[in-house]
Amino acid sequence: MRMLINTADTVVADALRGMAAAHPDLDVDVENRLVVRRDAREGGRVGLVSGGGSGHEPLHGGFVGYGMLSAACPGEVFTSPVPDQMLRAAGAVDSGQGVLFVVKNYTGDVLNFQMAAELAEDDGLRVEQVLVNDDVAVTDSLYTAGRRGTGGTLFVEKIAGAAAEEGAPLDRVAAIARQVNESSRSFGVALSACTTPAKGSPTFDLPDGELELGIGIHGEPGRERRAMMTSREIAEFAVGAVLEDLARSGPADAPVLALVNGMGATPLLELYGFHAEVARVLEARGVPVARSLVGNYVTSLDMAGCSVTLCRADDELLRLWDAPVQTAALRWGR
């Protein structure tokens, strides 16, 4: 195992210490595993809290800041954070306007966020929850009942965060988050398995010359294994799967937000080349791309591969997407 770590037991704590040193504008609580926007309780905004297992960086801690999340709760690698973390986060960001939990659809996250919401409400906090389940590759998996939450999480956190920044009330912020989730679909492809620090070996076997279609962000295998395909062929397959499912949510020619996301070990040279193929497929199918984002945003440790996420966006969602954001991993317009 070749990893830039001290020990598997301290990898998350060490990363949080590094984040605190690199981003003094954030309150990073290493002991309680929280990343909190320093001004989270100012301005009377709805608080946005998300989280999940570590290993998907910059999701979620890298998205804490102006115009996006108020706080993030990192768990151990590929392991849900615990309700106590979520409860502390809710208390740290509540300004009296309520808190929205953004929850990826993985069993541990769902159960723990639900428990935290109940505890928060017992303490007098208003809490809404939005479940992100944008992955079209599989219906059930090792980690989920129903569809997994993947790249669409970024769209939900950015757009709902912009609405909260503008002062929208809790029910409106939650409604926008649900609209984004319902309008988003994703599909992922692995060219290699990832290696967790605790295990020290690949999470699944992927022989040379093969790829896995429909993988999740925890290194779980997908729906189908094939011989290696070209970037053009992968784009045709992935975009086709996304558009087939997305057609049920609105007009086929509606504009989309397009995210080409790296899984952690694929360089930008390849991701931009793949984005060119995604744009070509969308143009050929008459789907206008309103905005594009390319890079490593929702990763799976050192997995080579990528995912495609498309979100059908009306004028209001586009306006909120374009609104200023300033986080460790996403920033523009400010």
Rank of each mutant, 00 (worst) to 15 (best):
S307I: 03
H56P: 07
G214K: 00
E233I: 03
E76Y: 11
D123H: 14
A174V: 05
T10D: 15
D322G: 09
A258M: 12
H275A: 14
R280L: 11
H218S: 01
Q129P: 06
A238L: 09
L293P: 09
F63W: 11
A265L: 10
V49Y: 03
G146T: 02
F113D: 01
R33N: 04
P324S: 07
G222T: 02
T10K: 13
H275Q: 14
R41V: 10
L301Y: 01
P221Y: 00
N296F: 01
V180I: 07
A279F: 02
D29G: 07
F78P: 00
A190M: 03
R148Y: 02
A90N: 05
P24F: 04
C306F: 15
V138T: 11
E31W: 02
G55D: 00
G108I: 05
Y66Q: 14
V325S: 04
S201L: 09
R147Q: 11
N112T: 12
I5L: 15
A120G: 13
R37D: 13
R126G: 01
P83V: 07
C306N: 10
G152L: 12
P81I: 01
N296W: 00
R285G: 14
V28W: 00
E210Y: 13
A252N: 08
D25P: 04
V103M: 07
R38Q: 11
G47A: 11
E118C: 08
D9V: 04
A290H: 11
G200T: 07
A120K: 05
D315G: 06
A20E: 14
E236P: 04
I217W: 01
A22S: 14
Y143K: 03
A328S: 13
R172Q: 15
G47P: 06
L213I: 08
G75N: 03
V298E: 08
A329D: 13
H218L: 02
L206T: 05
T299P: 07
R225A: 07
N112L: 05
P251W: 03
G264K: 02
F63I: 06
V287C: 13
F237K: 11
A198E: 15
I217R: 00
G96I: 05
A90K: 02
E182V: 01
G51I: 00
M1E: 13
A120M: 00
G51P: 03
A168L: 14
F204I: 06
I234R: 12
G44M: 10
M3Q: 15
H60V: 01
M303F: 06
T309W: 03
R147D: 13
G214S: 10
P74T: 08
G167P: 13
P197N: 12
E31Q: 12
Y143R: 09
V260Q: 05
E31Y: 04
D171Y: 06
G214N: 02
V46I: 03
D29W: 05
